[in-house]
Design a protein around this nucleic acid. Structure first.
Length: 636
RNA sequence: GCCGGCGUGGCUCAAUGGUAGAGCAGCUGAUUUGUAAUCAGCAGGUUGGGGGUUCGAUUCCCUUCGCCGGCUCCA
């Protein structure tokens, strides 16, 4: 029979050929590297019999598919190890995930991190024995019989739709319900590591049993595993909670769980960030407003938050009346809009607000600045005509991309989410809105993916995911069309026809939460902020006490030039001062001693490049000021 | 919220069923220093809070608060 290869070439193989046969026919090296195959786009075992005309592609560990197979097989090996170490363990599910895999177990006893090493030993033993993975297809009855003592597997089997093929994978004594595919044998796992242990609910539902989840990862080589472990360690080193304390940026206290306290240095960073933010927004034609944090219950009833968001809100009473602390800025912003009549001539009306919101998050999900109970949204609401949506969305996308580039977030992934099942508004309204967003995306020429049915109930949206230096992604910016609020608040404008109309409302953020974005920046830069964001931009280091006066002059000159500068006049050695300021990640140091005082000069040192040598004093001030300035918006 | 782990001076960490110790930071003094740590001395903790067991607890138990890891990337 003939099969087709990815390059279109035909290959003639025997009637009983498998994917492995194909790999062997192509070459011994490929046969050795092969771990699975795709047939007609479906990922299958190498041992899968082929049919005439199949499109066959051999999968190796070099591909994403290969990695997934490797990790899924590793999960099985982990389950084998876990049941061996703790007999009587019930197994639940064990999928491959980004960067690794996990397996959920119900252990007969409490299991802690100490068990990881034992799992590791057992896994390595299984790998050494190179046990073949054997696929077997069984009837539903047979499957239920086999997994009689495995309540979770039995539940999964019962939930499988009628007619679905039920397959098992066996390696050694271990059998698991599994769709596959798998590696040919356990010996094909080059490197695996049991990483951590934590609780997880069966099927993610807190009403269900709490299982014990063991996380692990596997890579095509020991070297890649080590590199991954190094990345994890690097991320630990860069943890913003650790750096935030070391750099004296912010703190948390038992008296306010989830409520960050910003220190002077943290506020310097935030203020620089906001200065840049305001410059960009001014350039993009936004006005800025500010609305109250506490507002009357009636407003929240009208906005729908009282019905839909109450569990996340904080409440208080003022003069016998119920008030709520705002979890979002839109209702307040709408009151500003409604405070006057509006004409189409004013549109598009772009009103930004750095709004402080409070949300009651579950205590267990709080996490440094990433998940807090109060934060500042860099919010904005754009009121416009339906035919202006497209231009406005393009404007938002441009603004977002421009600002992200400033922070070195070059890789941004855009996602268009469309109408969900439960939604308001007419079909044609949604269609038009989704089309506007899609057209706007096309106009920017940026790639994006579609997320059907994932929009908000009140309108479609575009989400932006940025990738930091460690390859982790974060959703920060969002751009949502909102049909609900204008309706609920009866928003109007007077059109060219002198009639009242409903404006379109666009809701968007760029940084998302200022606090969270700061956390992301801290980890992205490893605490070494670019000069314009650094809390302290320059330190002048006098060599001896007699140079203090001159050092003060240099600091004053830097200050006049807009540089956040200080003198380090401690009676310490120059080496010590440089070390301390280097640890504090100060971008510039200016050493002044006899030679510099004599020549009205400084010796310039940069955090990144070390000693830059002698400079005229004023040249140095200019050079530092240039490096320390807020980035200037450049409109295309 | 739930499960597991943790909670010792500002920070990092040590110790033990018999009333806690180091380094860094801090303070004082000496040193006046040329590109990543000068030296000496001093001071600092009711071992997260409350309760219990015990002759005695920081160490054991309970409770509470906080922190850390995680809570479908679906066989």
């Amino acid at each position: 029979m003939d099969v087709t290869l990815p390059d279109g070439a035909k290959l003639t193989v025997s009637e009983d050929a498998t994917a492995l046969t194909v790999a062997e026919t192509i070459g011994p090296r490929l046969a050795k590297a092969a771990v699975a195959a795709t047939v007609g786009g479906r990922l299958v075992d190498l041992s899968m019999p082929l049919h005439d005309g199949d499109e066959v592609s051999i999968v190796t560990l070099a591909s994403e598919d290969g990695l997934e197979v490797l990790r899924h097989s590793s999960a099985h090996v982990l389950a084998e190890a876990a049941t061996r170490v703790f007999p009587g363990t019930k197994v639940a599910i064990g999928p491959a995930i980004k960067d690794g895999f996990y397996y959920d177990f119900e252990f007969p006893e409490a299991v802690t991190e100490e068990a990881l090493a034992r799992f590791q030993t057992e896994m390595e033993r299984s790998i050494k024995e190179a046990k073949p993975f054997v696929r077997e297809e069984v009837s539903r009855e047979r499957a239920l019989e086999l997994f009689e003592d495995e309540p979770y597997k039995a539940e999964l089997i019962r939930d499988l739709p009628e007619g679905e093929t039920i397959s098992l994978y066996r390696h050694g004594d271990f059998v698991d319900l599994c769709r596959g595919p798998h590696l040919p044998d356990t010996g094909r796992i080059p490197s695996v590591r049991a990483l951590s242990i934590a609780g997880a609910y069966w099927r993610g539902d807190s009403a269900n049993t709490m299982l014990t989840r063991v996380y692990g990862t596997a890579f095509p080589s020991r070297k890649e595993l080590d590199a991954h472990l190094e990345r994890l360690e690097m991320a630990r080193q860069r943890d913003h909670r650790k750096l935030g304390r070391e750099l004296d940026l912010f703190s948390f206290h038992d008296e306010g769980p989830g409520f960050p306290f910003f220190h002077p240095k943290g506020m310097r960073v935030i203020n620089a960030l906001l200065e840049y933010w305001r410059a960009e927004h001014r350039a993009a034609g936004y006005e800025e407003i500010k609305t109250p944090i506490i507002l009357d219950r009636a407003l929240w009833e009208q906005s729908g938050h009282w019905d839909n968001y109450k569990d996340n809100m904080y409440f208080t009473r003022i003069d016998e009346a119920d008030f709520a602390v705002k979890p979002m800025n839109c209702p307040g912003g709408i009151l500003v809009y409604r405070s006057a009549q509006h004409s189409y001539r004013e549109f598009p009306l772009r009103m930004a607000e750095l709004g402080l919101v409070h949300r009651h998050e579950l205590s267990g999900v709080l996490h440094g600045l990433f998940r807090v109970r109060t934060f500042t949204q860099d919010d904005a609401h754009i009121y416009c005509l339906p035919e202006q949506i497209e231009d406005e969305v393009v404007g938002v996308i441009d603004l977002v991309m421009r600002m992200y580039r400033t922070f070195g977030f070059e890789k941004v992934h855009l996602e268009l989410s469309t109408r969900p099942e439960k939604s308001i508004g007419s079909a044609e309204m949604w269609e038009a809105a989704e089309r506007s967003l899609a057209v706007a995306l096309e106009r920017t020429g940026l790639e994006y993916s579609l997320n059907p049915g994932d929009g908000a109930f009140y309108g479609p949206k575009i989400d932006f995911h940025i990738e930091d230096v460690m390859g982790r992604t974060w959703q920060c910016a969002t751009c949502q069309l909102d049909f609900a609020m204008p309706e609920r608040f009866d928003l109007e404008y007077v059109g060219v026809d002198n009639q009242r109309h409903r404006p379109v409302m666009i809701h968007r953020t760029v940084l998302g939460s200022i606090e969270r974005f700061l956390g992301i920046l801290i980890e992205h830069y490893g605490g070494a902020f670019p000069a314009w964001l650094a809390p302290l931009q320059a330190v002048v280091i006098p060599v001896a006490d007699r140079h203090n006066d001159y050092a003060a002059e240099v600091v004053a000159a830097l200050g006049v030039a807009g540089v956040r500068a200080e003198v380090d006049d401690r009676t310490e050695s120059v080496g010590r001062k440089i070390r301390d300021n280097e640890m504090a990640k100060v971008p510039y140091m200016l050493v002044v001693g006899d030679r510099e005082v004599e020549a009205a000069a400084v010796s310039l040192r940069s955090r990144a490049e070390g000693d830059l040598g002698h400079r005229e004093r004023d040249d140095a001030v200019r050079e530092v000021a240039r490096g320390a300035g807020i980035p200037v918006p450049v409109l295309e």
